[in-house]
Design a protein around this nucleic acid. Structure first.
Lengths: 122, 122
DNA sequence: TAAAAATACTCCATAGGTATTTTAT
DNA sequence: ATAAAATACCTATGGAGTATTTTTA
């Protein structure tokens, strides 16, 4: 179960259209078709009523949508926390030292720091 | 990002061992190795300290673990709700008809019902 | 008839396996 | 020396694409 496919599903449910979802997701319509069919296979239940007029969520589809959104929220939170944490550790520190003081004074401190946070540019 | 791989990661983090996790997950140890390495690639950050003594979570690993559990909980909830809903719709109905009455009387009713709920066995 | 979904097919990436090697206690 | 993780490799599945057909407003 690929999280990306849950996004596909949520987008299709949003627009009630495979084609429109394929546009906003920047994938082709058959890929969406197959992904949804695959989801239905994995979950063992149809998610949309396809026959007759407009595309429509089944009861199962409605239940899945609600929960899929929670999964997607949780996942987005995961990536957000991670990028925050990486920015914190991957930044850049600039230190201006007046020529009179001389940099030797800082060198040990700095090298210790760089051992702990090798990704931070000083 | 396969949800299954988040389970792999959670299990490895639980045991702090690829091998033990591979046993409880019923997959081979190299598959776990590769899945974790793949996760680290997708997330762009190492999740474990591998060198030296015992396996240990990195800071990023700790953050991912907390959020991965939320994702997994949400996903489990999805499947639980779905199975509840399907059990409701996928049951079995037994109708006893006395020979005197004859089943012809019910046939139209039953066939209409089966159209609506094809998963229910009558 | 036009627009949307489904199908057929092709290709390539990758998940998972077995066998083996490397590494660290 | 032993146990765990990594690597090499192989196979099969399936995700995504293009081209086409079917379906339905």
């Amino acid at each position: 179960m690929d999280i990306r496919h849950l996004e596909y599903f949520a987008e299709v449910a949003q627009h009630l259209s495979f084609t429109k979802a394929s546009h906003t997701l920047h994938v082709t319509q058959p890929s969406i078709s197959k992904a949804i069919k695959n989801l239905e296979g994995e979950l063992g239940v149809p998610l949309f009523y396809r026959s007759s007029k407009q595309l429509e969520l089944t009861d199962a589809g409605k239940a899945v949508l609600i929960n899929a959104k929670k999964v997607l929220d949780a996942f987005q939170n995961l990536t957000l926390e991670l990028t925050d944490l990486m920015e914190l550790k991957g930044g850049e520190i600039k230190i201006g030292i007046p020529p009179i003081v001389g940099a030797a004074f800082f060198s040990k401190l700095i090298s210790q720091y760089k051992e702990k946070f090798p990704l931070i540019e000083i």
